[in-house]
């Protein structure tokens, strides 16, 4: 049983690529066979987030033009044995190089060989988005607890349901700033649920470790010592069907507050 999931957001810069990379790596760590497709033609980034930018020979558009076979364009992430592959897209072409039928066709082929096919969708709701969602049957909507990101997420959900026939997309709230939530300056999970009405797949607290991991080209999910890493591990377990409770965000803050008091830093 394989699943084709698109990771989308509407607004740019909320963390689609980071989420795609970490969910893919996390699922691979649990032993699933995973392929990640970068559908952001012209502005690809999944390769750098995964640290595989120097290994690209062929890409998605070469496959579409028949210049190579699908297998030749896929790059294996050696850190995860035989479990994680990435299909890059072209950096020097534009979104018109990949049509809805192209991605439908490629996802159809890949799902024969993988447990999870995960598509990193471009920002926006134009052609690139429409192609990216065409082959998917499920969607993860990434947003931040900010008005612009939430508004765009809502728009994307409407389009997914009405045009792409993808029902019940799941929500990931990225870069939640717990201290801002606690003082009432950032919307809570409950607020987000009220507004968007989506099932919550997970929350990723704002964590510097994500920037550090991306600098190094390794997904933060590998590092269980980090809050973001643990949040991604929980999300991955939920994707494979486990009921994992949300991590206790407040006690983490409580711990840090206590620590600050102990060392007299306030």
């Amino acid at each position: 049983m394989s699943e084709v999931i698109v990771v989308t957001s509407g607004k740019g810069g909320v963390g689609k690529t980071t989420v795609t990379a970490n969910i893919g790596a996390g699922l691979a760590m649990l032993g699933h066979k995973v392929v990640l497709i970068d559908a952001d033609t012209g502005l690809r980034n999944l390769d750098v987030v995964l640290g595989m930018e120097n290994r690209i020979v062929f890409d998605l558009t070469d496959v579409i033009e028949g210049k190579c076979r699908l297998r030749q364009a896929m790059i294996k992430d050696r850190r995860f044995g035989e479990s994680l592959f990435m299909l890059p897209t072209a950096q020097t072409k534009d979104k018109s190089a990949v049509t809805e039928d192209d991605l439908r066709n490629i996802c159809g082929q890949l799902r024969e060989h993988f447990d999870y096919v995960i598509i990193d969708c471009p920002a926006g709701i134009e052609q690139g988005f429409q192609s990216a969602v065409a082959g998917a049957e499920k969607a993860i909507v990434v947003t931040a607890a900010e008005v612009a990101a939430v508004r765009d997420a809502d728009r994307v959900v409407g389009i997914l349901e009405s045009k792409a026939d993808i029902r019940d997309p799941k929500l990931i709230i990225n870069r939640l700033r717990i201290e801002m939530v606690q003082r009432g300056d950032m919307m809570t999970l409950e607020d987000m649920h009220d507004i968007l009405g989506l099932e919550l797949l997970g929350v990723i607290p704002d964590d510097e470790a994500v920037v550090v991991a991306t600098n190094r080209g390794e997904p933060v999910v590998v590092n269980e010592q980090t809050v973001a890493g643990r949040a991604f591990r929980d999300i991955v377990r939920r994707i494979q069907g486990e009921a994992v409770p949300l991590m206790n965000l407040e006690s983490r803050e409580g711990f840090f507050n206590r620590l600050r008091k102990i060392i007299g830093f306030r």
Partner: peptide, 24 residues
């Protein structure tokens, strides 16, 4: 979750929520 995070407060998040509600 509300108990965990959502204590009612006079912070700017209520403004955000109300504006979003109308816009959406």
């Amino acid at each position: 979750l509300a108990r965990l995070l959502g204590r009612e407060s006079p912070g700017s998040k209520n403004i955000a929520k109300e504006r979003l509600r109308l816009v959406l």
